[in-house]
Amino acid sequence: MALPEIKTKVVGSYPIPSWLSMNPSTPALRDAIMVVLKTQELAGIDLISDGELSRYDVSHPETNGMIDYFIQPMGGISSAVTRSDLEQFASEQRMGFRVQPAGVVEGHVAEGTMNLPRDWRFFKGLSRSETMFTFTAPYMLSRTLIDRHYGDIRQLTMDIAEVLRKQVQSIDASVIQMDEAHLTGHAKDAEWVHEPFNHALNGIQGEKALHLCFGNYGGQSIQKGYWKDLMPFLNKLDVDHLVLEFARRGYDELHEFNELKPEIKLGVGVVDIKDNEVESKDTIARRIENAVKVLGMERIKWIHPDCGFWMLPRSVADRKMAVLVEGRDTFLDL
C-alpha cells in the first residue's frame, strides 16, 4: 500500500513505563521497547522510534538519555566534576535546565566506549514497521561540558561531530534524526554550527533529518528565539527534512520557511507535548491545512509532535499519537 503524501512520525522519546523503573533489567528493557514500538504501530504512525529507551541505563536509571548517554562513554571527557567546575558552569549560565556539567574535557575527544550501532541492533528487529534512529547534536552536547583542553568551542563541537559521524555510519536505519534543543535560543552561534552539523549528518547513509525545538523541561520551553534568525543556518544544512516545533508556539512564523531552499522538506509540529489536553482530529487537520496553505503541499512531507513525549503520562502520549494519525487522515480524506 502506498504511503500517504504527508507521513506521520514521532520525534523520539516516550514516557518510561513505571514497571521498567521498578525492575530495571535488560529483559525488562527489551519488553518495554517492544511495548513502545507496538503502541506506535497500533496508532498508525508511519515512522516509529524506540522511544529513546535504548538509551536507558538499567544500572543507572537516573542517567539523562539526551546528554549523559552520549557524553559519558566518550574518550577525553571525565565525569569527575569538582566544586570549581560546578561554580564555573553556574557562572556561565549556559543552560537554565541543567546546573551540573555533563563532564570535563581533559583531552582530545574520541569515541571511547560509545557504541550506537550496538544499541540500534538491540531494537531494530523488534518491529516490522519503518523505524528511525535518533541522536543528540554535537552543539548541544558541547554546551554541556567544561572545556579544559581545547579552549575553542568550535573545535570541541567539531570533534564531537566526528565521533557521532563515525558512529552513525554503521547504522542502517532508513531515517536517522539529529536532535538540537539549544541552538534555537543562541542564534549567534548559528553562523558556524552548520559545519559540525553537516559533518555529523554526512555520516548518515539513509534519510537525514534534523529536529529543532525550543526545549522541553518540566513541560516548559527553555529557549527564546525566532525561526527567522536561523534561516541562514538552515539554508546551509545538508539535510533531507526538518522536524520543527510549532504547535506550542503557534504558526505565525510559518511563512519564514518560504525562504528555505526547496530541497529541504518540512516536518511541522501539530501536537503540543507541553499540554496534557489531547487535540481533536479536526484541530490537527486544521493545523495541517494552514501549513499547506502557507508553504504548499510539496514542502510539507511530515507531521509530528513538537518534541518527545517523555514528560507526559503514557495514556496522554498514546492518545496524542492516535489523534495525530486521525487528523492527518481527516485532512487527506483517507
Rank of each mutant, 00 (worst) to 15 (best):
E5S: 12
K7Y: 03
T8V: 03
V11N: 01
N23P: 11
T26P: 03
L29H: 12
D31S: 07
M34V: 12
Q40R: 06
L42K: 13
I45M: 08
S49P: 07
L53P: 06
H60F: 08
H60P: 05
E62G: 10
N64E: 00
G65Q: 10
D68R: 12
Y69I: 12
Y69H: 15
Y69R: 13
I71P: 03
I71Q: 03
G75P: 05
A80E: 10
T82W: 04
R83H: 01
E87M: 09
S91G: 04
Q93C: 10
M95F: 11
Q100G: 01
Q100F: 05
A102M: 06
E106Y: 06
G107D: 10
H108I: 00
M114R: 15
K124M: 14
G125W: 13
G125F: 07
S127I: 11
R128G: 02
F133N: 00
A137H: 04
A137F: 04
L141I: 15
L141E: 01
L141G: 06
L141C: 11
L141N: 06
S142A: 15
D147A: 12
R148N: 15
G151M: 14
R154H: 09
Q155M: 08
I160L: 12
A161R: 01
L164T: 06
V168R: 07
I171Q: 10
S174V: 05
E180Q: 11
H182S: 04
K188R: 10
D189S: 15
V193N: 04
P196T: 09
F197C: 07
A200G: 13
L201Q: 00
N216F: 01
G218D: 06
I222L: 15
I222Q: 10
W227M: 02
W227P: 07
W227S: 05
W227T: 11
D229P: 04
L230H: 02
L234E: 03
L237K: 08
D238Q: 13
V239R: 09
L242H: 09
V243G: 07
E245T: 09
F246A: 00
E256S: 07
N258Q: 15
E259K: 12
L260P: 12
I264N: 04
G267D: 09
V271L: 09
K274M: 08
N276H: 11
N276Q: 14
S280K: 10
T283C: 13
N290P: 01
R299M: 03
I300G: 14
P305S: 05
F309Y: 14
L312I: 00
K320M: 15
V323S: 02
T330E: 06
T330Y: 01
